[in-house]
Every structure is written in structure tokens, then in C-alpha cells.
Amino acid sequence: MGESAEQPAREPVAELESAAARWLERVAFVIGSIGLLGAMAVDSLAVLGRHLGLPILGSIEIVQACVVLLASASMLGATLRAAHARVHILIDRLHGAGKHVLLRCSDLLSAIVFLTFAIGSIWIARELWGGHEHSELLHIPLRWLRALWIVTALTIAAVFVTRVVRKGR
């Protein structure tokens, strides 16, 4: 079986040299897989249940929670593997210091963006924290999902920051 090549315009897969990065990637993989397989299983059971006359009320809410898991974890995973889509016109033609500076600036901007995502999410979560935010039917508490996303966004920002400060790449 040929290797599945499905990272558009990616840079060569970053070395996951540190133990911390490897650990993070495992965590992201496990959470993302739970989300992905969970969404698959729950939606399929909902179809099956409906056709057997045993409808599952609130299945959409479980899938929604699964989607939060898989979306957060997948963004972290894509970041660890440097799989974000980018235009290579210039980067591939540069070598040495120029390329180095460009990549660092790009990582810095990425860190700022995810930090902003996190700050905005924290602000909102703080306002809603005592507001008992939960889903309609199953009363799934949304604040823990918000918290998961905040931790993820902060972690992604941190990954980009380590790339900025690290010497040589």
C-alpha cells in the first residue's frame, strides 16, 4: 500500500525530536480519535436506532461534543506535524538565513493568532462559567468543552513559540 500523501503544500514533516512533543502528539491523536470514532459511532447508531424504532434523542449533542474533541486535537496534531497549508512559491526558493527569518516570522504570527483565539475564548468562558452553559437535551456541560479548546489553543501557541525561540531548524 502506497503511503497516503494528503498534506497539501506541506513543508517536510517536522522532526518531533523532543519527548514532550511526542507525548503531546500521542495525546492529540488519542483525543482526536475518540472524537472521530465517537462521532462516527453515535451518528451511525442514531440512524440504526431510528430505523429500528428506538430513536436516540440528543445524539446530535454527543456528536457535537465529539466534533469539539476532534477539531481541537486535529489542529494541535497538524501544528506538531507542521501540516498547515501554505504557499511555497517563495519559501522553496530561499535558503539559509532568509528562509530561517521567514519561517520564524511566520511561526511568531501563528503563535499570536492562536494566543488571540485563546484570550477571546477565555474572556467568553469567564463570562459564561457561572452561567451553567449546557446542551439542551442531555445537559452536556459546555464549559469543559470550552476549557479543552482553550488549553488546546494555548498549547498550539506554545508550540509555535518554541519554534520561534529554538536555535536552528
Binding site: E127, L128, G131, H132, E133, H134, S135, L142, R143
Partner: peptide, 9 residues
């Protein structure tokens, strides 16, 4: 408010 899942019970 009827769509807000929290803070406006």
C-alpha cells in the same frame, strides 16, 4: 436569549 445555552436561563 432563547438560543443562548448559558447565562440567560
Amino acid at each position: 436569549p432563547i438560543y443562548m445555552k448559558g447565562g440567560m436561563h
